[in-house]
Design a protein around this nucleic acid. Sequence first.
DNA 1: GGGGTCATGTAATAGGTTACATGATTCT
DNA 2: AGAATCATGTAACCTATTACATGACCCC
Lengths: 198, 198
Amino acid sequence: MERRRKVPNPLALAVLAWLLWEPMHPYELGRRLKQSGQDRQIHYTRSSLYMVMEQLTRAGFVAPQETVRDSARPERTVYAITDEGRHEVHDWLRTLLAQPRQEYPHFAVALSLLSLLPPDEAVEVLRRRSAALAGQIEETRTTVAEARADGLAWIYLVEEEYTIALLEAERRFVADLIESLKQPDYARSWQETMGDRT
Amino acid sequence: MERRRKVPNPLALAVLAWLLWEPMHPYELGRRLKQSGQDRQIHYTRSSLYMVMEQLTRAGFVAPQETVRDSARPERTVYAITDEGRHEVHDWLRTLLAQPRQEYPHFAVALSLLSLLPPDEAVEVLRRRSAALAGQIEETRTTVAEARADGLAWIYLVEEEYTIALLEAERRFVADLIESLKQPDYARSWQETMGDRT
DNA sequence: GGGGTCATGTAATAGGTTACATGATTCT
DNA sequence: AGAATCATGTAACCTATTACATGACCCC
């Protein structure tokens, strides 16, 4: 049902999208990703840029256009998007938007093991999380406000709004969870079930 | 500040947690993970179980205890957790709970490129997402209700509640976004900026 | 003009996924 | 008994990350 993308790494999508605009070499791509703030949504390293360019080339989504040797810097290969590449961006983007895919946040794994910690310890660490979340929310809000003050339209900040929405939901969840863990019946039943451990 | 874990894969945490209970061989681990529903929070394949066992062994968190050859099945190696392993579980779990880590949901990447789609197309795909989200929420609720009917305590379902909280936040976000995209000024400004493309 | 640090890329290594293998067991 | 499927593991292959390399520019 979900046929595999030839280059599934999301970095590849961003790269293709930039090449829609104009041909570029990998290092330049990196600069744009950083400047546009997309590095906050995409996990990558400089090396992975070279890797995906290679993969995209093999897949036929981009093609090396020319190799510039500007006689100082190392040789830079400039890549251009192909027609298949253009098709891939459009199709992939639609799919990504239309179909939620199972994500695996680390916090969920930790939650599934929460019963291992004594109740008061659990409350303590979750309080720390809550504070950290508040900080991240604040930070993201600031980023958005600054960009907007610079005249950037809301549509180019929508991914940050999404981030904020998720962070706030998590903060509320954690607050509720802390309350539940503080109930004396929880402490009691935890003692009963987990009391017998070294 | 954040020293790297020797075995950063979250599957390793779940494995260690199960071994706290009793020594096991990898295949058995797989069965437990599936039966306990942790496979909904952790991304892994059967092979990666063998891999992490190897990594955990190298790291000194587990040790092969005995190799059972029950003269029918292939040889199975039973692993036991070590003291360092016990320490690692506890420390890792606390860290994971206390410190939010940057996650990279695919949807955020797609959102950052939303401006590439014509407004009506964007609305259409987001509506499909919204419906899919509603389905997932419903499904998760059912899972929780069934488990609870079986007598499972809330603390063992807390990760599912978290999933639900995130899904609902996303659904609300998408609903709002759709409304924004339907505004006629958005269609107008999209035409102006993006009208000039093939 | 030697010490950072940009700019740019390659190579080595570790991690993870897919494909393959093989002897039970169970079904019809 | 042959087909399907379970139980279990290994090997081959990609992917991604870390480490290494190298020439310019820039700063006192």
